[in-house]
Design a protein around this nucleic acid. Sequence first.
DNA 1: ATCTTAGTTGACCAGTCAGTCAAGTCAAGC
DNA 2: GCTTGACTTGACTGACTGGTCAACTAAGAT
Lengths: 201, 201
Amino acid sequence: MNAVSDTRERILDAARRLIYARSYADVGIAEICAEAGVKKGSFYHFFPSKRDLTVAILDATFADLKSDLLDRAFAADVSPLARLRRLIDLTVRSQTEMHAQTGVVPGCQFGNLAAEQSTQDEVLRNKVAEVFGRLAKGLAATLTQAVAEGEVGPIDVAATADAMLAYLEGVVLIAKSRNDPGVLARLLPGMLDIRIMPAAS
Amino acid sequence: MNAVSDTRERILDAARRLIYARSYADVGIAEICAEAGVKKGSFYHFFPSKRDLTVAILDATFADLKSDLLDRAFAADVSPLARLRRLIDLTVRSQTEMHAQTGVVPGCQFGNLAAEQSTQDEVLRNKVAEVFGRLAKGLAATLTQAVAEGEVGPIDVAATADAMLAYLEGVVLIAKSRNDPGVLARLLPGMLDIRIMPAAS
DNA sequence: ATCTTAGTTGACCAGTCAGTCAAGTCAAGC
DNA sequence: GCTTGACTTGACTGACTGGTCAACTAAGAT
């Protein structure tokens, strides 16, 4: 037995791959264990339940998304709007690559789970909402800078961030339903023009 | 035995309600039958498989959406843009009502299924894509009129229709993940400002 | 050497899954 | 009355579900 076991990590990775490629309900514990090369009892040693595993997946997925895509997109070497452009490019590239490798547009892990589980599992719904909140916050921070730098006129920053996130999720979903990554390249740049104005008072 | 059996209809209605409230995978044939008041053998008399049932659900759902919402929204008594506004209002109202009745924002039946099944069931993916295509087509027809009547400047009509649909789906998904119908009222009107320009040539 | 603890296993549990099928019922048509 | 076809049932199939648990293993500490 190794000094540090990597079993938990193997389970998490296997589950992430399988669930992302298919869906939460379609992937069972037995399959995850087979993929990770462990037995079920080990699974339950590390994760009290399937739901707990999924919460851990969401955290790990967000952490990876942040280091692999968001931090790159939002690096301050370019203007705020250029960062949003870069976010779009990286997203298009990511989904396109996955399509090239697997034959399917997998969609967004968070959006997929939200659509599938929100009405049935309050813990998972809340967790996804939390992740969505973080994503929107990152967008809002960039928009705030864009406004301060005069790249963007006066807008409701929080609402615009939410709207951009919604648009991103929607475009990814349509691309997934058509299994055509070309949809992303065609529609996602439109995200840059989304503006929600402050309410008239 | 009645001259005309309503069993098929009862099965379809029961399945629609259950799957819309939860998810495709979370609702089993046994439960659908119990809800419809029939036995499993009857189910398989009318539907060869769960997937076939779901295709029928998509058709019935679209037909109802068309008569209950789309036809009203797109009635020609107002200008094209006003029709889009009406579509937004009706959508907000519909999801808000369902939230009031059930405590959850159920999202879009088509989007939910796309997210859950697209990578696993090619038949269902295709069917949803087809329905999305019809929805986009309706939007495109209205946009074409808006352009013709000078309400909207020159745009890529098909792309703008797709973008609007994507935005609608995304907003509904965010509202579902937050279980807050207020998101719809706040963000959905932004759909009116979405424009995808013709590619520069 | 013994104890402790983290990790692992295999067998089990009760329930559920989509689908199958022989047999039965009923109403309409001849 | 008999036949037919639409519809319905109850029991079944083999597989699978998330989760449980007693027993075991191995490494580190004492």
